[in-house]
Design a protein around this nucleic acid. Sequence first.
DNA 1: GTCTATAATTCGATAGAC
DNA 2: GTCTATCGAATTATAGAC
Lengths: 193, 193
Amino acid sequence: MTTEAPAGGPRRTSGATKAAILDAARERFAADGYERATIRAIARDAGIDPSMVMRYYGNKEGLFAAASEIDLRIPRPETLPAVGMGAALVEHFLDRWENDDVLTALLRVGVTNAAGAERVRAVFTGQMVPVVAGICPDPEDAPRRAALVSSQILGMAIARYVLCFPPAVTMSREDIVDWLGPTVQRYLTAERP
Amino acid sequence: MTTEAPAGGPRRTSGATKAAILDAARERFAADGYERATIRAIARDAGIDPSMVMRYYGNKEGLFAAASEIDLRIPRPETLPAVGMGAALVEHFLDRWENDDVLTALLRVGVTNAAGAERVRAVFTGQMVPVVAGICPDPEDAPRRAALVSSQILGMAIARYVLCFPPAVTMSREDIVDWLGPTVQRYLTAERP
DNA sequence: GTCTATAATTCGATAGAC
DNA sequence: GTCTATCGAATTATAGAC
């Protein structure tokens, strides 16, 4: 029990508190979006006082910036199967989306908040485009191909995890990979139509 | 000038005021999302007093319900070209998205608000699924195919009109139709993978 | 490091005069 | 039909005690 700490000492370390705040923030931003996720609720979830959030992150915007740092961990092209890169990418993103609240949080905030949209664009430009550039036959066309791939990945994420269209929710992972894989593959490597 | 109306008469008709409110509401909801679109701002845009909004629509939720009524106007399958239904649908939705704020408003609110998500699901079930059922070879699979089609349409709409990925914004309509058309066509009519 | 108290806004919603 | 005035609640953010 942390309450057994010596008198005068911190109840818990600064690092642990900050991590607890970030965890709670990620969950709240993912569940409620930027406006409805209040600092009070986040602090309550983290079991600390709202003023601690301000102390550590300055303001709500700073908190979101810290909580929405993200690495998509897109596999390097060399590690992907030569055939079925599209399917492998779809599978990777399904994994990430189901195991990391930050993706949903970033998407929800990006749709409602101008600063959030800017962050999503930065992730797209910094992490998606370079990988696509390493795959597609015409690197100068990588941004456009990356946008096409992202549109399909984002669209399925919204249908399945945010809007919760029943058919999109009940579809098995395998079905989604089988349907979306060829689409992504085509966006990556097909000749321009 | 409406101020020349006879003493005691309304400055403008009830219908005109209500329409002005709905127009302003659609714009605000589309631009700011549900939480940030305030009744005060909507009333200011419409050039009336905030209390009029309450009088006509009861509360904010009622206002959004009225402002987000929408008909996707998806063409009946018979009127679509036998070959290139996918392309025709993509073109239709690009048109709708560029000429009707309600689509963006509904999408923005659906992502942040539970009631908004329910409305999007209702539009999906009521307008998208039936059309797909009239096109696809196996009507019992229409909901799933409709979800796949919607995921690609919604994803491009978000990338182009909400998140504003530069490549998605600068792409020409023709390019989008050429790239997404075959995808939608496959989701509609291809055998299950 | 943690918490109390509170300032300063802002919002949705209501009551009532004209 | 329209507007003024305002209530009550909720929010971010700050100042300062312990």
